Simulated assay, not measured.
Amino acid sequence: MAAGHRAIVRDRMYLRQVPRPRVFRDRSNPLEDLREEEIFARYRFRPDTIYFIVDLCQAAARDTGRCFAIPLVLCVLSYLRFLATGAFQLTVGDTVNLSQPTVSRVCRQVGQVLSALADRYICFPSGDRVRQVKQQFGAMAGFPNVVGVIDCTHVSIKKPSANPEDYIGRKGIPTINVQDYISSSDVAREDTRCTNLAPMCTPKEVLRRYDHVVYDLINGYIGDMQGFLLADSGYACTRYMLTPYMNPVGEAQARYNGALCRTRVTVEQTFGILKQRFQVLRRKLNCYPERACVHIRNCITLHNLGIDRRDIVAVDPIDPNDNPHYHGVDVGDNMDGRAAREYVTRMYFER
């Protein structure tokens, strides 16, 4: 038995001494081999936009000292493929002939570069853009002085090791609660721009920090714009953020609720566009909250970048009457909010 064990050890030592054959993988550019429709189906952007993203990610390129370094375009394509499909890194690597550790490394590098560009593409409107937004929303449903709509969506993540109970969402699984403010309503062209309003944090953290984060930003930005932000009944009605009547009385309040729902449906449609374009948001992000927040923010950055370049994805329209989102909970309406809502109802929806 000892002799057999020595033979096994000897064979293993011999195998270790045999050098592995060096494999030179195919580094051809898929953008040069596929048609434009095939590229869009796989990476959710058209070739000219992908090359534009590659130019933005030049900071991710580094000199490895190797003869066959990975081209930057393959690094970007790997990350776009990951966001577009939500697949395992091994599966993503098979599409561009990269190993799983390499895909993990390049996704981290490209993700960090895109995250640094978030402030360039995720921002509140200003100047003439505010007036244009008000006109767009007014033309949609006749709701006056609307500068945006707000809502949240949940993205499933890997259960964190620290304080996992704080990340349990309403469905009993760990999630990231994403608060977004939509500042455009041109849904006929799917031109709905996302502006991240609150930090991407857990549901309980959002509830604890509402007064200090969300509403302070609303008072600061929306107040300066002299307009309103529309939300569903899960939010508190404030001077600058209007919510629907839970039990409308009279035709004026019913017309107010109808106009609010027809306007607020933009944010629901935008979440649908985001999750249809980036399937990683629809499936489970197999990473911890810090990395998940980077991926989510990059999806929003790329979404807005695609809008700027008119590289958009279509989505089926949502009927606002089928999705009113009346949560039926009391979140503490204040007198200023109710007074503002009554004023808008009386001035614009009474006949």
Rank of each mutant, 00 (worst) to 15 (best):
Y288E: 15
G272I: 03
L117F: 15
V113Q: 09
T345H: 08
V76R: 03
V178W: 05
I307G: 06
L230K: 14
G258Q: 12
F24Y: 15
C293M: 05
F349E: 11
A162K: 13
E37D: 12
T91K: 05
L74H: 06
D11C: 10
Y235E: 12
P101Y: 01
V267Q: 02
H212Q: 09
G142K: 13
Q136N: 07
N196L: 15
Q89P: 01
L90S: 13
I218F: 04
R62H: 06
N298W: 14
V344I: 15
H295Q: 13
R22K: 15
I273R: 08
Y235H: 07
V294E: 05
L77E: 06
G65I: 08
H325W: 02
F349T: 14
N323K: 06
R209A: 12
V92P: 04
S28C: 08
F124T: 03
L274D: 01
F52T: 11
R262M: 07
N196E: 06
P203I: 09
Q58W: 05
T301I: 09
P174V: 11
Y288P: 01
P289Y: 06
H303D: 07
Q253N: 05
T102K: 00
Q17R: 14
T85E: 02
T153C: 02
G258E: 10
R22L: 14
T202D: 11
P160A: 01
R346C: 11
E350H: 09
I182L: 12
R108L: 08
T243K: 08
Q89T: 10
T195M: 14
S161Y: 01
R6C: 08
L74Q: 09
F271C: 00
A7P: 01
A84G: 01
C261M: 11
K275M: 07
V249W: 08
T202M: 06
K159A: 02
T95L: 04
I50A: 06
P125I: 10
N286C: 12
P203F: 13
S104R: 07
D311P: 01
C107I: 12
N323T: 08
S183D: 14
D224Y: 03
A41R: 15
T85F: 00
L83Y: 00
I176H: 00
Q109T: 13
I70V: 15
E350Q: 14
L74F: 13
I300F: 09
P144N: 05
R310V: 09
V73H: 13
F24C: 12
P174K: 00
T263C: 10
L15S: 11
V106P: 02
